[in-house]
Design a protein around this nucleic acid. Sequence first.
DNA 1: ACAAATAATGTATTTTTGACGTTTATAAAT
DNA 2: ATTTATAAACGTCAAAAATACATTATTTGT
Lengths: 245, 245
Amino acid sequence: MELKKNPNISVDCVVFGYDTTTKSLNLLLINRYLESASGNEVLVDDYVLTGYHIYEHETLDDSATRVLKELTGLTNTYKKQFKAFGDPDRLKNEKDITWINNEKFNFRTVTIAYYFLVKTEDVDLEKTKHNAKWFPVAELPTLGFDHKQIILEAYEDLKIKCLAEPIIFELLPDKFTINDVQDLYESILDIEIDNRNFRRKLINKKYIIPLDEKQVGVSKKPAQLYMFSKDVYEKMYQKNYLINI
Amino acid sequence: MELKKNPNISVDCVVFGYDTTTKSLNLLLINRYLESASGNEVLVDDYVLTGYHIYEHETLDDSATRVLKELTGLTNTYKKQFKAFGDPDRLKNEKDITWINNEKFNFRTVTIAYYFLVKTEDVDLEKTKHNAKWFPVAELPTLGFDHKQIILEAYEDLKIKCLAEPIIFELLPDKFTINDVQDLYESILDIEIDNRNFRRKLINKKYIIPLDEKQVGVSKKPAQLYMFSKDVYEKMYQKNYLINI
DNA sequence: ACAAATAATGTATTTTTGACGTTTATAAAT
DNA sequence: ATTTATAAACGTCAAAAATACATTATTTGT
């Protein structure tokens, strides 16, 4: 049975990953293939987020989860619906037109945008569909549709969110060093942080748990490895209503 | 010319107001009128948010702004798009069905939900459409559709947001007392705050400006009035990247 | 003048932040 | 075996912010 889809509504997935070696916050983007009026698929010279129209019987969340899984094979990743984009002219360029039964579809498509935080190590680029590649957020290629705007707004939301919740660990390997965490904050927020103060602050958190393990294979003093305990965090750190205006 | 609308997509407006005398955070809700298969409008015994399908040529933001204006007459109020709701069964009850040309419309309607912060004094209930009434968030009536869920999520978003940005002043009269602000935080967050510490903290903000005016018409010691300067706030308080996890 | 009601104030303690330079552990090179 | 290169790890002091807590002051109404 063919799944019914609705051309009015889609989801788009902004997939963030972090490369601990290059210390770069990256986005997973795919080549765009254009479905032309004649039905052929043509490669367009820009990159886009993965997205798709929603099916008739799936929730928005499920739809986004499905799209991510189709792209990367990943499930159970951090996911946040952060904004809907629906300007009537958001797909106004000729090559952005949706064709249905050889007719232009004129009503705008509203897209529900999600961002995902994934561990780069979990994504095997060889197995991804659509020739997906990682791009540093600081050096994005030309983007199709309004995806540049979507990415920028996702990034802003991520910046705010990572200040208030320990979601940053979703981007790191299960075992990480204190410096990894600092580097990641510095990448995301584009700031410099004092190492000693940051270290003290982080090590004092009960949910940052030192392991009986150090880095291996590094040609220098190997660093202590830590893990993040979501359990401890959720049990111990209930909302503190600190008014910070 | 009749405006084309799209039954797949709507906006819904969660309108927050604050009553300084009862110290109650309120929501503006309307009676629901059901458009039956026969085309008649029937009063349903529950309340709903105001919302409407979007028109072909308006942005999502404009659509929400329009809906709020139609309800209250207000423009230029604080507005935030906070989430899209689109479960396939969100309008599954018989009385929630949308009818188009006497046929059931089966694809779910995705609604883009906004919340607004308005000054209660600016809303003249007599002039509102649809018999709108204020309800304390703590004592909501029976709600139609999935509007209870939408309201709860709006409220959660507001709680987080008011900790990080001075949006609370959108809910207060232009001239307010320090205790008004404290009471409002206490209402929204459902917490108790120490008056002396709160006072000191707030008065030290450059954007809280004391006026040459005191309360009038109160049968007690009248309190000093203050105003909030958005200008000063925006000029002086750039983002401080305080990691608070 | 007095009573009632709420506004307004101060201090001491603890906690958190911010600034700042040196030592230590390890692998690789010689 | 010794040296060298590299990044990890560490501690103190000062300033700022948060927290806890009780009394006095100002006004209106009687």
